[in-house]
Design a protein around this nucleic acid. Structure first.
Lengths: 125, 125
DNA sequence: CAGTATCCAAGGGGATACTG
DNA sequence: CAGTATCCCCTTGGATACTG
């Protein structure tokens, strides 16, 4: 038991999982659903810059993997709500940490890049 | 102070940070350096399936962003060691959690996908 | 050992317009 | 409102071979 899967192994199925998690917009969607269900248009407005096509695709993928649920309320106009499943909520924990890290370390990264710039532009004294 | 950056905003610089973190092989390299410095060939052997070209590219990017350091020992044959910087070690925390999640939830994801398969193949009774 | 140099393809994702 | 339908690009990354 335990240690059964290892992403470092070329053919380990955990790699496909990692691939899905790493998809461009997964971290956005999972974080956007952190505080409860949201509708398609709400998600699109909240995650600035995402196109409807890509939003749909990513939602479908996450649904297939059991990370989010899609609930359709019969009505006109349509009403659809997306929510994290228990599995999705467990993923939220690491992904919210990733998001927080990104937001917290912008200055550090920018400083490192600037330092690297200086390095490159260093006059040969 | 605080809350200065928000990945949900279209032009927030944290998005480029997130993009770097989300690069195909970043999570592998950062995790591979968790236990101390490693040499190029060690990394290549440990992270199965990565090509030298991609390994080099990702290492350079991480170096530019100040997440890893590159130490060259003058000798023949060459001897180079890569290590996490303090900033890189701080990123290791969320990224090791992501890795662990991927490895732990393979069965859950596979089960969800199987359920979805059934759904699709459901005979119309 | 630690990379470079080329070449190439695949597909993920973007832009735009349309619809039940 | 909640998506589809197209079209297309172009970057990311894989394969392979070579080198100081």
């Amino acid at each position: 038991m335990g240690k059964a899967y290892n992403v470092m192994a070329a053919t380990c199925p955990s790699r496909t999982v990692l691939h899905r998690i790493g998809a461009r917009w997964t971290v956005f969607i999972v974080n956007a659903l952190a505080d409860g269900p949201r509708r398609f248009t709400e998600l699109k407005a909240h995650i600035q810059g995402i196109t409807p096509k890509v939003l749909t695709e990513t939602l479908r993928s996450l649904e297939v993997d059991g990370l989010i649920s899609r609930r359709e309320y019969v009505a006109n106009p349509p009403h659809v709500e997306y929510a994290l499943t228990p599995l999705g909520r467990s993923l939220l924990i690491p992904l919210r940490a990733v998001r927080a890290w990104a937001e917290q370390h912008v200055p550090d990264i920018e400083a490192a890049r600037a330092r690297h710039e200086d390095q490159a532009a260093a006059p040969t004294l």
